[in-house]
């Protein structure tokens, strides 16, 4: 083509072309962000990312399941026997060694995530050999401190961030 042969191919290092390309690339990247960020949790979801639980009405020995960030959290009012069992375990016996004191703020209240660390099922309370929790999916057993003792799960039940606002009120998250 005559036009093509009489024109030198644009010099790629030409500053103008480089600048235009760079500014264009910045624009595309900036435009992409809203389209990525829109999939993140929205304001209404974030507003529910912490909850306040009234624990005053939970009798000793009971487990109450509350919904937090779309999943279950167990609030367990432990009996003296359960506390004693949890505290007297040797760390060497544990797959994921943690003392009971590391897992609770007040010994009578155990607050753990209700998601089995194996594959995400919800374990059943007061069941299994250790009378903590038993996961019906693959038989993982947790003790009264929510620590994994037997079965395929690798880790203890997670302890969410929480704070006692008063003797009867806990803020989770």
């Amino acid at each position: 083509m005559a036009a093509a042969t009489t024109i030198e191919a644009p010099n790629r290092r030409d500053f103008l072309f480089l600048a235009t390309g760079a500014v264009g690339a910045v624009g595309v990247a900036a435009l992409a962000w809203p389209f990525i960020d829109q999939m993140n949790p929205d304001a209404s979801t974030l507003a529910l990312s912490s909850i306040e639980v009234d624990i005053g009405a939970i009798p000793v020995g009971q487990i109450v399941t509350v919904k937090w960030r779309g999943g279950p959290v167990f609030v367990r009012h432990r009996t003296a026997k359960e506390i004693e069992e949890a505290q007297n375990v040797q760390l060497s016996e544990l797959r994921d060694p943690q003392t009971d004191a590391q897992r609770v703020q007040k010994p009578e209240w155990l607050i753990v995530s209700g998601i089995c660390t194996h594959l995400g099922c919800v374990p059943i309370g007061h069941e299994g050999k250790y009378e903590g929790w038993f996961c019906p999916c693959h038989g993982s057993m947790y003790d009264t401190s929510g620590r994994i003792r037997q079965g395929p799960a690798p880790l203890n039940l997670a302890v969410p961030e929480y704070k006692f606002l008063s003797d009867t009120k806990v803020k989770i998250g």
């Binding site: 809203p34 829109q38 929205d42 304001a43």
Partner: peptide
């Protein structure tokens, strides 16, 4: 369409409350 709910009871609020107020950059999109 990821945020819109095609139902006579929820379509209006899914746009005007959810997308326009809460979804990140929903108003822009």
């Amino acid at each position: 369409a990821m945020h819109y709910i095609p139902s006579a009871t929820e379509a209006f609020t899914s746009i005007n409350d959810n997308i326009m107020r809460d979804v990140n950059y929903g108003w822009l999109i």
